[in-house]
Structure formats: C-alpha cells, structure tokens
C-alpha cells in the first residue's frame, strides 16, 4: 500500500509544471524515504531529478517500494481539476496498474477522485558522480528566469562566466551582443534577494537557452535558485521545495565541435 498526502494541491501543480515541458512521461519511485523521479528529456540533453522526502508530506505510507510510470499530460489533466487549497492524496495498491489521486476541499464538503492508468516505462537510471564545483551561484529565481527569457531573444546559446567579481550571462547573435552582469550582493534586507557566489576557480560555460528556459518553469516553487558549475561537466540548476525536497536539472554544456 502506498499513500501520500499533501496539504495543498498547488505544490503538486507547480512540481508538474516544472517537469512537463521536458518530460512526456516519468517514473515516480516511491519508498519509505519518499518519492524520487529521475528522467532525461527526449533529446537526452538534460536530466531532471526530483526528490520529495516522506517527512515533508502530511501523511506518507509506503509498505513496499513501488515504481509508478505516469503520463505527465494525463496527470496535468487531473491536477487541473484540483483547487489550489485542496488536500491531495495519491494512493496505490502494491503491484497496482493504477494510481488514485484524490482531492478534498478544506471543509471536506467536496471530495473528488481520479484513477489514472500507470505505464510500464523502461527508464534507465543514471549514476550522477559527486562533483567539487568550481562555482556555486545562488540568486533570486525570478531574476534567473528574467535573464534566461531576455537572452533567449538574442541567441540559442548563453555563455555563463563566473569569477570572484560576479556572474555574467552573455548572448550573441544577428542583433548583436547582450551582457548581463550580477555582482555579489553586499547586505540585503531579505535573504531571498541575495546573490551569493562561492568560487574556487573561475569558469566559463555555454548552454542552450531553450533548456534553461524550460528549467525556469520551476520558479514558482522557490524564491532562490542555485547554479553549480565546473569546467566540462553539466550545469546543475537546483530549486528547493520548502520543507519537502528539491528539483535539480542537469544540462550538458555546448562544446567545441
């Protein structure tokens, strides 16, 4: 028996919005420690890794490890039927081929349930090596989304250059060149407005705007985003999900032909 309950359906809606542009379907691996999802996008350029800890749920029970392959378009249709403040409960029997998603209004006067067919997805799991990153940048998630959106107008690629002075995002194309520099913030009133750079070594890497913009669909989940970079390895873009877990996106850099 698997049962996981969250106080607000809005969190699940935001999580789905954060992955459904990259993934058509994905396997939710459930164990007593929580729910994990790891999947590459169709072009195998990026990888999504979602962790939801069992202690972040209002109720969590998982008697046996369970892998639930879900069509994310179908799941989106179901979540559209929930009000943001509804409780949401996911339930499945051991070895079941369906999952039940139930919504309850705050006053419990409206209860709806949706049974969704599960899929057998043959997804490979990748081992992600530990990396000592040369640069780790923490910045407001909205600012990162804005920069990715703005620079995508000028080029398919963005160059991220991180030094101890700050982080620079650049794009160059037919129109010309765009550069956006962010310095580390001095003192800020609010922690969520801070730009913090931890640099061991300067690093310059090139990434596809299209994927960065897809990652920023996670912006509603978190006030801050963390970018971890190291020469010749994938960028890690991480959004914390408060009291529940995190979503990490890995993006292969563009390299010299």
């Amino acid at each position: 028996m698997f049962e996981a309950r969250l106080g607000q359906a809005t969190i699940l809606k935001k999580i789905l919005d954060a992955i459904k542009d990259l993934l058509n379907e994905a396997t939710f691996d459930c164990s007593d420690s929580g729910i994990q999802l790891q999947a590459m996008d169709n072009s195998h350029v990026s990888l999504v890794s979602l962790t939801l800890r069992s202690d972040g749920f209002d109720k969590f029970r998982c008697d046996r490890n369970l892998s639930m392959g879900m069509n994310l378009g179908s799941m989106a249709k179901i979540l559209k039927c929930a009000n943001n403040e509804d409780n949401v409960t996911m339930k499945a029997q051991d070895n079941a081929d369906t999952v039940t998603i139930m919504f309850e209004s705050a006053n419990q006067e409206k209860v709806s349930d949706y049974e969704m067919k599960l899929m057998n997805l043959d997804q490979e799991h990748l081992g992600i090596p530990e990396t000592d990153f040369s640069c780790v940048v923490r910045m407001p998630a909205m600012e990162f989304a804005r920069i990715c959106r703005d620079l995508a107008q000028f080029s398919e690629s963005v160059v991220i250059c991180c030094t101890k002075e700050g982080v620079k995002f650049s794009a160059s194309g037919d129109v010309g060149t765009a550069n956006i520099k962010l310095a580390q913030t001095g003192s800020v009133d609010k922690e969520e407005e801070a730009v913090i750079i931890e640099m061991q070594e300067p690093v310059t890497l090139t990434f596809a705007c299209r994927y960065l913009n897809a990652f920023t669909k996670a912006t509603p989940l978190s006030t801050q985003v963390q970018l971890s970079m190291c020469a010749d390895v994938p960028l890690v873009v991480e959004y914390a999900i408060k009291d529940l877990g995190h979503i990490r996106y890995y993006l292969a850099p563009k390299i010299e032909d």
Binding site: V45, L126, P129, S157, Y250, A252, I255, D257
Partner: peptide
C-alpha cells in the same frame, strides 16, 4: 562552432 553534447556522456548507467 559549439555543439550540444548529450547528458549521457557525463553520467553512467546504473
């Protein structure tokens, strides 16, 4: 010219 690599080149199959 820079080209897009695959994420597979960086991670190993489990």
């Amino acid at each position: 010219k820079k080209v897009q690599g695959s994420i597979r080149n960086y991670f190993t199959s489990k």
